[in-house]
Simulated assay, not measured.
Amino acid sequence: MAFTVQGDGEPAGGIDTTLGDSTSLVITTNLEFARWGAVFGDDTMAAAVIDRIVHHGRLVLFTGSSYRVTHSLMT
């Protein structure tokens, strides 16, 4: 799947779904779906992207403290 954005932040062609059901894709984010509209600049576009991602997919939600943040050199 590919999502293309023009220089002005506007979608430029939509979503490419040529990977189909034959390829695995892992996406990690700390941003809940409700806030994706701000990233894509459009709630409708964000909803379409989320729909494509979760269709036949599995969501894994981790809770608790982050090992990476807890053991960061910056702390």
Rank of each mutant, 00 (worst) to 15 (best):
M1A: 06
M1E: 02
F3R: 06
T4Y: 09
V5H: 12
Q6S: 15
Q6W: 13
G7M: 09
G7E: 11
G9Q: 02
P11I: 04
P11M: 05
G13L: 01
G14D: 05
I15S: 07
I15C: 12
I15L: 14
D16C: 09
D16E: 12
T17V: 11
T17C: 13
T18M: 14
D21L: 06
D21E: 11
S22I: 10
S22F: 11
T23N: 09
T23R: 11
L25P: 03
I27Y: 05
I27G: 00
I27M: 09
T28C: 05
T28D: 02
T28H: 08
T28F: 04
T29C: 03
T29H: 03
N30M: 05
A34P: 01
R35G: 08
W36C: 00
G37D: 00
G37I: 00
G37W: 00
G37S: 00
G37C: 05
A38K: 10
V39L: 06
F40S: 00
D43K: 09
D43Y: 10
T44M: 11
M45W: 13
M45S: 14
M45H: 15
M45N: 15
A46V: 01
A46D: 02
A47C: 07
A48N: 07
V49I: 14
I50R: 00
D51I: 06
R52A: 12
I53S: 01
V54A: 03
V54P: 01
H55V: 04
G57R: 08
R58M: 15
L59Q: 09
L59K: 05
V60I: 09
V60S: 10
V60D: 08
L61K: 10
F62K: 07
S65P: 04
S66D: 06
Y67C: 11
Y67H: 11
Y67S: 13
R68T: 06
V69P: 00
T70E: 13
T70M: 14
T70Q: 14
H71T: 11
H71Q: 13
H71P: 08
M74K: 13
M74P: 01
T75I: 08
T75V: 08
